[in-house]
Design a protein around this nucleic acid. Structure first.
Length: 560
RNA sequence: CCCCCCGUAGCUCAACCGGACAGAGCGACGGACUUCUAAUCCGUAGGCUGGAGGUUCGAGUCCUCCCGGGGGGACCA
């Protein structure tokens, strides 16, 4: 669908507003942004507009009069059947029921692609998410970023944006050297040597597993190495960690278009690497100052609280410096129109300086958006689950997925807005009972659609669009309304970067179908015309459910 | 001391960049199965939206202050 119904309504209201000014019913006024909303109460129509209330003081007229002047001039054509003016000054629009019913065929045509809009056409967006250090397995918290970023990317894609999903691999710097040295120690231990872990080394048992795997792959080839760590061993260990991260994410059904290595920013002859070019940009723009033996980014000049170190007095670049180079690469080299970085809330302090850096290297700081998500706490029923390795409780993302499954993990992770802390209830998520687990409830509704359609086929009944006018029951029109509002929901979620609405929509859509199913019999051989219409509605429901579940990243089973 | 997020029903959370009567799920209580999946549905109870001011025709939403919870404020990432 190229245009959401709401946009069609908005255009007709705008035309009416302009007409009212043209014929003198309203005084000339500067252009105003029209917002068409969906009223909570059904008796207020399908859409409402508050433009009259917002204009009233500017045009010095009572809001009800303004509303009437506009409402009278709204053309009663295609999507609009009726227009009312209500109490304070709302303009309420009722859609043409037949027009809505006919849209069900477009829904069925679209299938699980229903809901697509074109608002983002021609706009290139990168969503970078997870990007956890490859020095250890993904934790539960990374799962939230993974689900959030992936669902946001799906929503943006559905809204017509050209989206790239990216994982930034921090494979350079001090923590990687420490990773290599830890691994080397574990590797030597595999051969019975008593080698201590380096100071502050990675304690996790996974390092032992990686060391064992290296021994199995390559035997003792690095045992006599004089390097600490041997470069090959370090790189191979890193590869294995990245593969593990990749596999964990695949379990969650998260796939990236591009894995960007931090080390690649330093590739190239002297002065030609991305890093060198970006730093040269900063210097050229006088954004750099040397003091106390280090090189600093003059963030203070850009409104920051303090300057930030780019190059330590040791000569080694900071994480921030490679981040500057990385964002230079995103905006100036790869030329994304918008970049959305999904970060944990503990990185909140980096937002302002990174935006400042984007501007400083010649990009638009506002084109970098950072989506911060708050912490995840686990609980199992009423019991808090401590995420500590010592207690042997669940810690890693993989353990979480193994306990509750990818569907529940994704649905639950997406159920809260990013800026709210989350209590993740393992007991509820692990339950297959739809009363505990909304993901099951929605999947069940989809399976039920499939089941009804199977039964109909056996009974010799098929969906038909010949008598859609028979869809007049309350539950039927509510369900139609739910199905048809997905495109504008996609548009809103994309614009606001808020994919969590998907889970609420999914539940309300599933509920609308289930209520319809409960109240009316769909397959009635004695009533082929009505059955045909209801089967069409069932088919459209199935398509809308599948489309929604696809965006959330949850399976749409045909039976349960 | 400064910055960011949160505070909404017993619990976990929504509320469409200020809108009409603050909504779901779970939990509690009470109903509905000779018919397409009862893995369901219907009903009841439950709220001064942490507090106090302010802006507005209108505030859970915006502003100020306070209280409470969480997260930041390194030549760590």
């Amino acid at each position: 669908m190229a245009r959401a119904t709401r946009d069609l309504v908005g255009e007709l209201v705008r035309n009416a507003l302009e007409l009212a000014q043209a014929d003198g019913a309203l005084p000339p006024i500067p252009p105003i942004e029209l917002r068409i909303e969906r009223p909570k109460e059904r008796e207020h129509g399908d859409y409402s507009c508050n433009v009259a209330l917002r204009l009233a003081s500017a045009v010095r007229m009572p809001p009800m009069d303004v509303a009437s002047a506009i409402a009278q001039r709204i053309m009663r054509t295609e999507p609009i059947a009726d227009v009312d003016v209500a109490r304070p000054g709302f303009i309420n629009v009722t859609l043409d029921a037949e027009w809505q019913r006919n849209l069900l065929l477009a829904v069925i045509d679209a299938g699980d692609q229903w809901g697509r809009v074109e608002q983002g056409a021609g706009h290139r967006v990168q969503v970078e998410f997870v990007s956890a250090n490859p020095t250890g397995p993904l934790q539960v918290g990374n799962g939230r970023g993974a689900v959030l970023g992936d669902a946001l990317a799906s929503v943006l894609d559905a809204a017509g944006f050209d989206v790239q999903r990216e994982y930034y691999v921090n494979d350079a710097g001090a923590q990687i050297r420490l990773f290599g040295r830890t691994l080397f120690a574990r590797y030597q231990q595999q051969f019975g040597r008593e080698v201590p872990l380096p100071e502050g080394g990675y304690q996790g048992a996974y390092m032992v597993d990686v060391a064992r795997q290296l021994k199995e792959e390559s035997g003792d080839r690095w045992l006599q190495s004089s390097e600490d760590p041997p470069a090959e061993l370090s790189e191979r260990g890193l590869q294995l960690m990245i593969e593990q991260i990749h596999d964990d994410l695949a379990l969650l059904r998260v796939e990236f278009d591009h894995w960007q290595r931090e080390s690649a920013l330093y590739d190239g002859a002297n002065g030609t690497s991305t890093y060198d070019v970006a730093m040269e940009r900063l210097r050229g723009g006088s954004f750099v100052i040397e003091k106390e033996g280090a090189v600093w980014f003059r963030s203070e000049d850009l409104g920051e609280d303090k300057d930030n170190v780019l190059i330590r007095s040791s000569g080694e670049p900071t994480y921030f410096a490679s981040d500057v180079a990385y964002h230079y690469d995103k905006f100036l080299t790869r030329e994304f129109d918008t970049v959305i970085d999904v970060w944990g809330a503990d990185h909140q302090g980096h937002v302002a300086r990174t935006k400042a850096a984007v501007s400083a290297v010649g990009g638009d700081g506002d084109a970098l958006e950072v989506l911060l998500y708050q912490l995840v706490h686990l609980r199992r029923g009423d019991e808090r689950v401590r995420m500590s390795k010592r207690t042997g409780e669940i810690v890693t993302l993989r353990e979480l997925i193994e306990e509750v499954g990818a569907d529940a993990a994704r649905f639950f992770m997406l159920q809260r807005s990013a800026d709210a802390q989350m209590d993740f209830d393992l007991a509820a998520a692990a339950s297959a009972d739809p009363r505990q687990n909304p993901a099951s409830y929605v999947k069940y509704a989809h399976a039920r659609c499939a089941s009804v359609l199977r039964n109909a086929a056996e009974a010799g009944l098929a969906p038909s669009s010949d008598h859609l006018d028979l869809l007049v029951e309350e539950q039927e029109s509510v369900l139609i309304g739910e199905i048809l509002r997905l495109p504008e929901l996609v548009a809103d979620m994309a614009a606001r970067r808020e994919p969590h609405h998907l889970t609420y929509y999914a539940q309300s859509l599933a509920q609308a179908f289930t209520q319809f199913y409960d109240a009316h019999r769909i397959v009635v051989p004695e009533e082929p015309e009505q059955s045909g219409a209801r089967l069409t509605l069932t088919q459209a429901s199935q398509a809308a459910l599948a489309a929604t579940l696809r965006l959330i990243g949850v399976d749409s089973p045909d039976e349960m």
